[in-house]
Amino acid sequence: MTSWIRHSAARGILTSRYPDRAATDEELPEAGRTPTAHPEELARLSDGERSLCPTGAIREQAVDQGRCIRCERCFAFGLRPLGSPAMNVGTREELRESAGLADRRPTSVAPFGTSLHVFMIDVGSCHACNAEVLALGTPYYDLNRLGLFFTNSPRHADVLVVVGVPTPEMVEPLRRTYEAMPGPKAVLAVGACAIDRGIFADGPRTGSSVGEIVPVDLYVAGCPPPPVAILEGVLALAGRGATPEERR
């Protein structure tokens, strides 16, 4: 007992200062950032270079953050990682335009108070997104300090965090889980798979995306997104998201 106290005291405070301070490089590694380029640079890319992207995320004017799986192949022809956690979070349109929440003041999607209960559902993930979502409960991120909590039943949940690409078997469970939640409720799709099926877009058993099954309010891009980006997403649902000035 006392030795646990000793251990804890010896480690000191580990918890992130995010969102009060900007995310550090440790909290937001390159792979968690958004590969972007100026529209004119993108326009210069050849079709061959464009087709190197395994998910077809590179569009004429922007990189579709929702599709990008951060494989970094495109770094070879000049795209660069940049951005804040808020850049990973946005509506489907915002992510498609490489914008994210970073460019606007987020508004709460549901009449929530400031404290939310979060239930996570896995509909076919590789477990990396699950791990990053659950990492919010560990000392480095500690979502409880922000009045956010994990719950073990959708009956008690305000926010449904969906990870993974829906397999045929998980379509119905996802729908049931959404049905089981009391209103008001919101859905946060986390990770490339949950946004637009990611690498699995042309897979044999992964034909539908989460947005076609339940209404998604906000998306968190990444493969997997870093915990701070997921945190940003949950906060945004409560109307506590970043503004461009605050978090850049």
């Binding site: 440790e26 590694p29 951060r70 990053e132 997997p224």
Partner: peptide, 23 residues
């Protein structure tokens, strides 16, 4: 405490290989 160590290791992997899970 163990989760904290795991997070530190993930950061070490990320620092070394550019991705927390080594993708």
């Amino acid at each position: 405490q163990v989760h904290a160590l795991e997070e530190e290791l993930l950061r070490a992997i990320s620092r070394c290989f550019g991705h927390r899970w080594g993708f």
